[in-house]
Design a protein around this nucleic acid. Structure first.
Length: 871
RNA sequence: GCGGGCGUAGUCCAACGGUAGAGACAGAGGACUUAAAAUCCUUCCAGUGUGGGUUCGAAUCCCACCGCCCGCACCA
């Protein structure tokens, strides 16, 4: 039997490619740049999602991230902004080299193939992206400009070369990042990692520590969480450096400098602890087998978090002693402590057991004195097994008027002591930061070559700008570990840009974080012959809305903030753009249930075998089973990951339901900053809603015919429509996409329930519904818009405006409470006087009964909200 | 240890200090159907982690505790 409702099924598979093609043909999302198209006089809006690493396929996290950015881009565009919404590829990095090794191929080949595949996947999402600005950071055109920036930074003293300790993998013959060292071994080679001193390039980010810290206060469009993380990372501390003179110089060292933030506890100092890597420890170990052995032990101990947690606080008495700077009659023993870090402070601390738990544990263990520096007011008890560590804002009584102190907060005590000690020449007040300079040298091939030359005669010589880019050679092999640039037959042999003699190129490449520290600026003029075009960056930057994962809360964002400052210093950016991201939104992860079963291996060890969502089905009894019918355990809902096999492939979802469904579901229910759980039922529900909207539209289109009369009157449907406009507009602006979605459901229900007696109002409602949905489900919106008889596309249609007159009611219901409990309802004019409302409330039977003839103590009328009668 | 966040129907989530319910998922019943799917209609379900406090009124503000998540951390 032929079905007559065939047209009521919305076929995303047909509609989506069609509209994507039409958008592209019309260049709907291309943003004018300089000469290509005249810059519009509309206000600009730059929305950017963190660009992806081209791993090969997009994942659901990308879908969520880019769906959010697309909602913002499309809504802002409809609201009259000239929107810049670009996309590119963070394309350098190790996975490409690993893939090249595995396949005996070339990183570029793998990377560009991945980019092609992922571009198609992103295009299938129907994103409003200006693809004409696309670039990959591995494009020579991009890294040439990055090299130019490097040279300008070098010239402006924003870079330095110094020796640093790095993790060295002796098998892969490369430097490893801390994250790549697992339990002291290289994550790939599994070889024990060595510490090596290498001369490396550093960005002088620490010169900006104070500025980067202070400016955090201005980032009011950022999540508080990220601001706190950045503050902590910079880690400003104020303290004092105090030299402790050795009673007898040893190994040519006369004093040990200690840095402390708590000089007010100096009276309680009872020992000095120095790092095993401290110069004094090293010097002493030369002639002392015990010390040498202790140092070796410390070096071998794990540095993982877990190892540190469990590691015992151990020490070794050097036999040396120092003079207490404030009480010269006292001497303190010098210990080597395994808990003292060489790379924080001076690598030496004084131990104050009375007011530091770790020091107390150490003192008890090695039977060192415990001397109090202060006690709580009214108490004099000595410290037992717990150190006395009050909040710095609490008042304490300092012992023996140390530094002239008596009763003061520790904060005040610290200030006073620093001044007092400085005046006496006992130490020097200091501000320190935890932030370290950013080492950017990587002994890798697939990165941006550092454009300098090593010349025997001239030293380090920057490459000339006209010789840029220093290109990566194509003819490299990955059949051996190590850096192919190092062993390439000819690449590194060049001539000195200064003297013209034979010289060698730097074979290190840049950290990939460099690539992502300025790409947002490059998008403003991606083909410029200089890193930026000042007119363009001044027009677009700072980025109005940046969206990405919380995992980049520290490094990427901090580096970008540094880069913007460095680029401003070198004239590539306006000083007004030193904060590159006006607003930041960090979206939550996409999670899914896990499915597993315990399996015994041949060795008899139990381990979990995981199943993908495709491999399991829920039986009628509610039990999950694999293809063979065996039950599997439904595990916790966690971030989608390959190892737990709980991933859903966006491409399959788009093929099955369409991109709009995937987008809609991603934006529904969960607030965008929280994790969202992908469920089959949820996806089906989203698809059902889109079908319902399509059905309503096609039904309405029949009913409405060619009506073009503007809607008039104040019917409930019109009020619902205009309230939805207000709410959705506000919710999108505030990143409450889940609420915007809920509002749209409400409007949909209103349209579905309408009897159609006012065709103009119904048309207004349906058209509004489509326009409000358009940022989230753009294809369905276009298809529906066309079905309603429009010739202009939705992307060319302005955002609907709410009529203020329809946002308020004439008569409203107000609940009446008695002592905070609801007892009655009254209906009054919306603008009724308080006294009128009060009269009406008190006149209610239920209220009269409770009053029982008496009069209320108080009547509180909150206009438009509630009446509370207090008895 | 320090810091940040979150606890509301079976689930995901709403609720300027003002009637705990906008919305979705799931469930139940019904209509349509030979039946099912789809669709439509109706409907059940919590007093807001716990204990105090402030207030006319607290999910919301304050304090303490419990639980979960995240970040940093031998940081001197």
């Amino acid at each position: 039997m032929a079905r007559d409702d065939d047209r009521q099924v919305y076929e995303a598979g047909k509609a989506e490619p069609k509209w994507q093609r039409l958008w592209t043909e019309k260049g709907c999302f291309e943003t004018g740049e300089g000469g290509e198209r005249p810059a519009s006089d509309r206000p600009t809006y730059y929305v950017l999602e963190m660009f992806p690493y081209p791993s090969g396929r997009i994942h659901m996290g990308h879908v969520r991230n880019y769906a959010m950015g697309d909602v913002v881009a499309r809504a802002k565009s409809a609201q009259g902004f000239d929107v810049l919404h670009p996309m590119g590829w963070d394309a350098f990095g190790m996975p490409a080299e690993n893939a090249a090794m595995e396949r005996n191929s070339h990183p570029a080949k793998w990377t560009y193939a991945n980019i092609d595949a992922m571009r198609e996947q992103l295009k299938a999402m129907g994103l409003a992206i200006d693809w004409s600005r696309e670039f990959a950071t591995c494009d020579p055109e991009y890294y040439a400009q990055q090299q130019a920036l490097f040279l300008d930074f070098l010239d402006a003293d924003l870079l330095t070369r110094k020796s640093a300790t790095v993790n060295w993998d002796p098998v892969d013959m490369t430097v490893l990042a801390n994250e790549q060292v697992v339990d002291g071994r290289g994550w790939r080679s599994n070889a024990p990692v060595e510490k090596r001193e290498l001369t490396q390039w550093f960005f002088r980010i620490t010169d900006f520590a104070e500025e980067l810290l202070e400016a955090i206060d201005t980032l009011d469009g950022w999540p508080e969480k990220v601001r706190v993380m950045q503050r902590n990372w910079i880690g400003k501390s104020r303290g004092i450096e105090i030299p402790f003179a050795l009673t007898a110089p040893a190994a040519g060292i006369g004093a040990v400098d200690c840095y402390t933030t708590r000089p007010d506890t100096l009276r309680g100092a009872s020992f000095l602890a120095i790092s095993p890597e401290h110069p004094l420890s090293i010097a002493l170990s030369e002639g002392n087998a015990d010390i040498a052995a202790f140092r070796d032990e410390c070096r071998l101990a794990g540095t993982s978090e877990e190892a540190l947690e469990k590691a015992e606080k151990r020490g070794l008495d050097t036999g040396l002693s120092v003079v207490h700077p404030v009480y010269p009659e006292k001497t303190l023993p010098v210990w080597i402590g395994n808990f003292v870090l060489m790379d924080y402070g001076t690598g030496a601390v004084f131990g104050c057991p009375a007011h530091d738990q770790r020091d107390l544990d150490f003192a008890r263990k090695y039977d060192l004195p415990v001397v109090n520096a202060f006690h709580m007011p009214g108490e004099t008890a000595d410290v037992g097994t717990e150190a006395l560590v009050p909040a710095k804002t609490e008042e304490v009584v300092y012992t023996e008027h140390f530094a002239g102190l008596e009763k003061a907060t520790s904060n005040a005590g610290i200030d006073t002591t620093i001044d007092w000690m400085e005046a006496k020449g006992l130490g020097k007040g200091q501000v320190r930061y935890r932030l370290r300079d950013w080492g950017l040298s990587r002994q890798r091939y697939w990165g941006c070559p550092i454009p300098v030359v090593h010349c025997d005669a001239c030293g380090i010589v920057p490459e000339k700008k006209e010789n840029l880019p220093v290109r990566l050679p194509d003819d490299v092999t990955f059949d051996r570990p190590g850096n192919p640039l190092e062993r390439h037959a000819t690449w590194k042999h060049t001539t000195c840009p200064a003297c013209g003699k034979e010289a060698t190129r730097e074979t290190d490449t840049m950290d990939t974080f460099v690539d992502s520290s300025w790409y947002f600026a490059r998008f403003c003029s991606p083909r410029a012959e200089t890193p930026t075009d000042r007119a363009e960056v001044d027009r677009w930057l700072p980025v109005d809305q940046y969206i990405g994962g919380i995992e980049h809360a520290i490094l990427h964002l901090l580096y970008s903030r540094f880069f913007a400052r460095a680029m401003a210093k070198t004239g590539h950016l306006s000083p007004d753009s030193v904060e590159p991201f006006r607003a930041l939104f960090t979206q939550g992860m996409v999670t899914h249930e896990t499915y597993s079963r315990k399996v015994k291996t041949n060795e008899g060890v139990e381990r979990d075998v995981f199943f993908t969502p495709d491999e399991v089905t829920r039986g009628e009894d509610g039990v999950m089973r694999d293809a063979a019918g065996e039950a599997v355990t439904v595990g916790p809902t966690i971030k989608m990951s390959k190892s737990k096999r709980n991933t859903i492939d966006p491409e399959e979802i788009i093929a099955r339901f369409g991109a709009d469904t995937a987008r809609w579901f991603m934006l529904s229910d969960s607030p965008p900053e929280r994790d969202v759980e992908w469920t089959e039922a949820g996806a089906e529900g989203a698809a059902r809603h889109l079908q319902r909207v399509w059905r309503l539209v096609t039904e309405a289109a029949d009913k409405l015919g060619d009506t073009r009369d503007p809607a008039t009157g104040t019917s409930d449907l019109r009020k619902t429509t205009h309230r939805a406009i207000r709410a959705v507009t506000d919710d999108i602006a505030a990143f409450r996409f889940n609420k915007a979605v809920a509002q749209i459901y409400g409007l949909t229900n209103a349209v579905a329930g309408d009897r159609g007696d006012d065709p103009a109002a119904l048309r207004e409602a349906v058209e509004t519904l489509i326009l409000l949905m358009a940022p989230m489900t753009p294809h369905l919106a276009e298809e529906a818009w066309a079905a309603l008889g429009h010739e202009r596309m939705v992307v060319e249609t302005p955002w609907p405006e709410a009529d203020p007159a329809l946002l308020k009611d004439d008569r409203i219901m107000m609940p009446v409470q008695v002592n905070g409990k609801k007892r009655a309802e009254i209906h009054v004019d919306a603008d009724a006087d308080k006294s009128v409302v009060e009269q009406a409330a008190l006149a209610e039977d239920a209220i009269q009964k409770l009053l029982a003839g008496g009069s209320p103590k108080k009547v509180i009328v909150v206009p438009g909200r509630i009446v509370n009668v207090v008895l």
